[in-house]
Computed example of a mutant assay.
Amino acid sequence: MQNWHSPTITGGQLFYLMQTVAPQLDFREVVGIRVGPGALTKFAETHLADTVKRIGNQGGDILYHIVGRGEPHRDIELAALWKNFVSPSSPLHLIVEVENQKLTSRATPASNDKGEVEIQKVSSQEHDEIRAKFVESLPAHDAAAMNENLREGASFTEWMAVMKERAPDATRKWGVFRRDHLSALFAERIEALNLDPATRDNLFAQAKAALRAANEKQREAKANAESSLPKNIAQKSGSVGQSSSLHAVRSLAHAAVDVMGYEELRSLRVPLGMIIDSLKA
């Protein structure tokens, strides 16, 4: 477990890791839960207590910390801060606790009585403006190809599809361009608060750490979705059964959604019937 690429691991990832290193292990028989949920959780709590500790949930899956690997709570908190800042639809407030020189996300707004101030999150319009500026920054032939093939009001998914098809070299530049401009927006928000230099610099440092944590979570989710998942399902589906594979697919899908920004979430295509069914549940 010490060689795992992250200090945290989800239940779905733990399941496939166990199947890889100990394919003959029947953990359901060990814990006495032959069918239904809860078997892996009980096995981890009973037999892996010195290896993994449950620290919460990631999407619909359990999230564990690998013992001896960093400080997971702070990493998760930092990633959530950045995700909140770049998500216009997030219900959470991004707060500066001036006295403590600390950034935090929470459900309640800033308290003037406590000397707190609120940071405005990135708006949908600002996301659109960043994309427009990126197209303007491209070489003339790439910019023309993008503009000629983008319909007005195109979704983020459509925008990305056009770029990959018409200006493929630009895709490698987009991530850095977007991060730089979002970071600049955050810096503008902080500067506008007219805080003392020490507090301002402390907040800048926290924002940079939050961005790094968010990027790391996104890289982990992509790595799991693009490499580990197909390989494991192809190799293990015959031995572990359809329900177990489906559980892992859902777990990794939840993990991917958890690290998506506003634009990616906005572009997801979910059948209307599933939304209606979930509301009835």
Rank of each mutant, 00 (worst) to 15 (best):
K164Q: 14
S155E: 10
S89G: 08
L252R: 10
M1A: 12
H254F: 13
S123F: 03
R34H: 11
N232M: 08
V162R: 11
D113I: 11
S87F: 10
L150A: 15
P91C: 04
S237R: 08
A44E: 01
A22G: 04
K53M: 09
G36N: 10
I276E: 12
L94V: 12
K133M: 02
A80P: 00
H247K: 10
S105K: 01
K173Y: 10
S155T: 15
F15K: 05
E152M: 07
D201L: 10
S90F: 01
A255I: 02
K208G: 02
D277K: 07
Q24P: 05
R166D: 12
K53G: 04
S245G: 12
G32H: 08
Y64H: 07
E148K: 12
V21Q: 06
G11N: 03
L211A: 01
S6G: 05
I276W: 06
S183L: 09
A184T: 13
R266F: 02
K102E: 05
T199Q: 13
A132W: 06
G115P: 13
L265Y: 05
R74Y: 10
N202Q: 14
D50N: 09
A140W: 01
H65Q: 14
S105P: 08
P37L: 07
F134D: 01
M1V: 05
T20D: 11
Q19E: 11
A80V: 04
G70P: 01
N147I: 00
R74F: 02
A170S: 13
L150E: 07
V21L: 06
G115M: 08
P271E: 14
N232D: 11
S244C: 02
E188A: 12
A145V: 06
F186K: 09
V270D: 08
D61M: 03
L246N: 03
E263Q: 15
F186E: 07
T46Q: 14
V162M: 11
I66Q: 04
K231N: 11
V31H: 03
K114F: 04
S87M: 05
A221Y: 11
M163E: 08
R219Y: 10
D277S: 09
F85W: 03
I233E: 05
S228E: 13
I95K: 04
E116W: 05
E77S: 08
S6F: 00
D201F: 07
L229C: 10
A256G: 00
V86H: 00
Q13T: 00
E216G: 11
P109E: 01
R250T: 11
A44S: 13
L272N: 01
I62N: 04
M18E: 09
L92D: 01
S123T: 15
K83Y: 01
A144Y: 07
A192Y: 12
G70M: 06
D277I: 05
Y16R: 06
Q24S: 14
F156V: 05
V176L: 14
H47C: 06
H181M: 12
S87H: 07
M274E: 07
K217E: 02
